[in-house]
Design a protein around this nucleic acid. Structure first.
Length: 851
RNA sequence: GCGGACGUGGCGAAACCGGUAGACGCACCAGACUUAAAAUCUGAGUCCGAAAGGAGUGCGGGUUCGAGUCCCGCCGUCCGCACCA
């Protein structure tokens, strides 16, 4: 195709077929070269690929392809996180079976991914909704069960009292069920838990070794696990019983003015029947932390009084309160309004006393607390001889020592981290392999009954879990007594599916979840890439499963992801149109109103210097650049863009400009710019192909070496935007070099481009008469001698302000640099005969004359 | 509410360890080529100012010969919060 434009449509298909035929991207377990496991977080098959996926997988692909050219054995797999709520929502809304919906989505999305030419090892593809996958997950669950890492207890869920169903947090909108609109309440249900807290110390301490993780993610996990030292103490009631409370601020104990317990605390349930309706009202609202924390703090005085452990003459009232949860700690707290904002708000609302017990250094201990709790440092005041005058930390120690000596409490380390509730009252998930028997209790399902497969004939006409109401599925014999029993109808949280998929990619035997030797070869993942929204839950759960499997002897590796990269979101301008209409108001007068609505990018067109909506001609205003979302209609489907510009332009654009960890604004003009560069890269090769092959000029050889060095570093650091800037530079240098001297540099250029834009690189490689595929070509090496410049530009400053620059030999001595600077005409004029008081010379950088 | 980040031209950004702010790209403008357009190439391009010069990295202070970078205090925006994935 000499002299013609690069035809992406033809080239994309041609080279994708060539890579397929050569099975380029299949990883071999017996490959002796150094391994590189590159993994992007696998997608939920929601229907279509969105540009966020394209960004994520392009980043991983560039790295995988570069590593491959650098001579490593690369494992770069892809699969589907295929269980989840949207499939059931589709089933309810459209009557399609979740499995059918999911598999159709997978087929469509796989085609889309293939059209982008990603170097995936498709032979290892998996979908978590396949019994071949989730059966092994059930086996692993039984292993954890046998190791004592699984247990069952009651826990709160969002309950919709109209639909009689459990709601996910996202299905609770402003405290109401999303379908019924009923006020949601918190209700208790027996549920399965994984004992992640047993690994709390390990998971926390293990973060220190993850030096290739972003600091922010490690900090978030640290705070999430939240190891703290505090005091578990008991307040005595009038009768011999006690209420147990946990606090991280035992130093403020003398500031306690009330106790608050969860509305479902045994004492609250045992309170005066007349109070029960008020107590029940405290359970309204969702279980999400943000809902609970931001809801108005309300409570009910239970009429119970407890004695203060440090001063038995003080009695404190016990309240039931909506912000205390039975699931956290002991389900009871002591309120110290002076030094905790939430307690202060509560105390002010109900007229409870506020007693300052901490004062800043030098501040008046009698200074009353206003509307803001004091949480800063200082000394203990108003707390009696035991504590007054102590700093906070010694005061904590003193209270703990006293509690332990007198037997009413003990110091303890607690974690913010709670055990992982994995039960979901839903159909489209991995069935929990447990059988409930009225006589024997819960029994693990027999190994030879795995996989326990989901029934296909289910109905979604009514809310609730279709597994529970299926006529036959749950009825089985008890494995112990063989009497009639019932299967667990809860399914596993989909986070369980994504907690070990990276092991199954490394090794996928039919008769076991994975093979240890193969996993040991490939793990840990050398580079994991995904959205920062997974910084806590998914990454913590995956770390936990890996550690738990190592703990029970199934694995050697303890940490699954050696390096983590969290990429930013793809954003787009939003567009709003307005529709003017007239109506008659309640007084019978005619009025003009206007409705604003969102317009999709492909419905916006330019008309003069005005934007209009194509279908209606309504005026369109450009709104903020925001995360792509269906509600704002600012999403872009990559497929038409690939059809128009080709895979390379899309890949090039999506990793250009914005640093990978930051948000990336997609724009129609941006993709055109990328497309122009792909054409330019082809044009360079096409032109150079017909030229003789003479030695490059020194300048071009240097430019190619600099680009090689820089691009290699930039790709390794996932700084694709910088690599791309260098490639633009090198393209310019090649274009400006004398014809006939640029063949070698062009070949280097193409190799450097290949990981990002592999199709045009192959086409150009072939045009230049090279044998074999460029994906198999070795990565270029930069000659270190070419990276060194013999001249530098020195900045000359007066009082730190730039006055001139000079080109000087590299490594110039400070006296010579100073003399050179002082001799410059601009400097002589600026100094006007004055002698600098001081001269600062930074070698090969600048001379600063301080006047 | 709690936790974590981010903030540099019209826009996306770059700036090694505190040392020439704005590389590279997008958009825009001017020019070349063309009968014309597209494509391509060349150039201008932070702001104020005619220029000399001055100001300038969210805002206010500080450290330093020198601050986008370090410190203190604000403001704004975004993300996560355990049943969304």
């Amino acid at each position: 195709m000499a002299g013609e434009r690069f035809n992406a449509r033809i080239a994309d298909a041609k080279w994708q077929a060539a890579w397929d035929a050569a099975r380029c991207f299949e990883a071999r377990d017996d490959d002796p070269r150094p391994k590189s496991y590159i993994l992007e977080m696998f997608p939920y098959p929601s229907g279509r690929i969105h540009v966020g996926h394209v960004r994520n997988y392009t980043m991983g692909d560039v790295l995988a392809r570069a590593h491959r050219m650098q001579g490593r054995a690369v494992l770069h797999p892809m699969g589907w996180d295929a269980f989840g709520m949207p499939a059931e929502n589709a089933a309810m809304a459209r009557g399609v079976h979740p499995g059918e919906w999911t598999r159709a989505n997978i087929a469509a999305m796989r085609d889309q991914l293939k059209s982008l030419g990603f170097a995936f090892d498709w032979s290892r593809e998996l979908a978590t909704c396949d019994p071949e996958y989730y059966g092994h997950e059930q086996a692993l669950f039984l292993d954890l069960y046998a190791a004592g890492l699984v247990y069952r207890r009651e826990s709160q869920v969002n309950w919709d009292p109209v639909d009689n169903t459990v709601l996910a947090n996202e299905q609770v909108i402003d405290g109401r069920g999303w379908r019924s609109g009923a006020l949601v309440e918190r209700r208790k249900l027996a549920q399965w838990f994984l004992r992640i807290t047993q690994f709390a110390d390990e998971l926390l301490d293990g973060l220190a070794g993850l030096d290739k993780w972003p600091d922010k993610v490690r900090t978030m996990q640290e705070n999430w696990i939240g190891r703290s030292k505090g005091l578990r103490l008991r307040f005595a009631l009038a009768d011999p019983s006690t209420i147990e409370v946990y606090t991280t601020r035992p130093d403020t104990l003398m500031g306690a003015s009330f106790l608050a317990i969860a509305p479902d605390h045994p004492l609250a349930l045992a309170a005066d029947p007349a109070l029960q309706p008020a107590i029940a009202a405290l359970k309204l609202g969702g279980t999400a932390a943000a809902d609970i924390e931001t809801a108005e703090k309300v409570g009910v005085d239970l009429g119970i009084r407890v004695r203060h452990p440090l001063d038995p003459t003080i009695t404190l009232p016990v309240w039931a309160a909506n912000f205390v949860l039975m699931d956290y700690g002991t389900g009871a707290i002591f309120g110290c309004p002076a030094h905790d904002q939430r307690d202060l708000d509560f105390a002010r609302k109900y007229g409870l006393p506020v007693r300052r017990v901490v004062a800043a250094e030098g501040a008046d201990p009698a200074e009353p607390i206003g509307t803001e709790a004091y949480t800063g440092p200082g000394r203990i005041v108003n707390s009696g001889p035991l504590l007054d005058g102590l700093a906070i930390e010694p005061a904590k120690a003193a209270v703990i020592a006293r509690a332990e000596a007198e037997g009413w409490g003990e110091g303890s380390t607690v974690f913010r981290l709670r055990d992982w509730g994995v039960s979901r009252q839903r159909y489209w998930g991995t069935p929990i392999p447990i059988i409930h028997c009225a006589t024997c209790g819960p029994q693990p399902a027999p190994r030879d009954s795995l996989p326990i497969v989901l029934p296909e004939d289910v109905d979604f006409a009514t809310p609730g879990n279709p597994l529970a109401r299926h006529p036959t599925w749950k009825h089985v014999a008890c494995p112990a007594c063989h009497g009639p029993a019932e299967r667990e109808t809860d399914t596993l949280d989909t986070f369980a599916d994504s907690s070990w998929y990276f092991l199954r990619f490394a090794s996928h035997p039919a008769n076991a979840p994975f093979d240890r030797a193969a996993v040991d070869k490939w793990l840990p993942v050398d580079q994991y890439i995904g959205g920062v929204e997974h910084a806590i839950l998914h990454l913590l759960y995956a770390r936990f499963w890996t550690r738990a499997l190592a703990h029970i002897g199934r694995l050697t590796v303890a940490e699954p992801f050696a390096a983590l990269f969290t990429q930013g979101m793809v954003t787009h301008e939003t567009y709003k149109a307005s529709q003017v209409y007239s109506y008659t108001d309640s007084d019978g007068r005619s009025q003009i109103g206007d409705d604003e609505y969102w317009v999709a990018p492909d419905e916006v067109e330019r008309s003069g210097n005005q934007l209009i909506e194509s279908s209606t001609g309504n005026m369109v205003e450009v709104g903020r650049v925001e995360k792509m979302s269906k509600s704002k209609r600012n999403t872009v489907d990559p497929t038409p863009v690939i059809d128009q510009y080709g895979a390379d332009a899309v890949r090039w654009f999506i990793v250009s400009d914005s640093p990978a960890e930051r948000d990336f604004p997609w724009s129609a003009t941006g993709i055109e710019g990328a497309w122009r560069f792909i054409q330019r890269a082809w044009r360079i090769a096409d032109t150079v192909a017909d030229e003789p092959d003479l030695a490059p000029t020194p300048d071009l050889a240097k430019a190619a070496a600099r680009a090689t060095h820089g691009v290699t570093e930039d790709i390794a650091a996932l700084q694709f935007n910088k690599a791309i800037a260098r490639l633009y530079d090198l393209a310019t240098q090649i274009e400006r070099a004398p014809p006939g001297t640029r063949r070698a540099s062009t070949l280097i250029f193409l190799k450097l481009v290949a990981p990002i834009a592999p199709h045009v690189a192959e086409e150009a490689w072939e045009r230049l008469g090279q044998h074999g595929l460029i994906v198999d070509a070795p990565w270029p090496q930069a000659d270190p001698a070419l990276l060194i410049d013999d001249t530098v530009t020195l900045a000359i400053q007066i009082n730190g302000k730039l006055r001139d620059t000079i080109i000087a030999p590299k490594g110039l001595a400070r006296e010579a640099a100073e003399a050179l600077a002082m001799g410059q005409e601009k400097i002589v004029i600026a100094l006007a005969g004055a002698t600098p008081k001081k001269v600062i010379v930074v070698s090969d950088r600048l001379v600063n004359l301080v006047a």
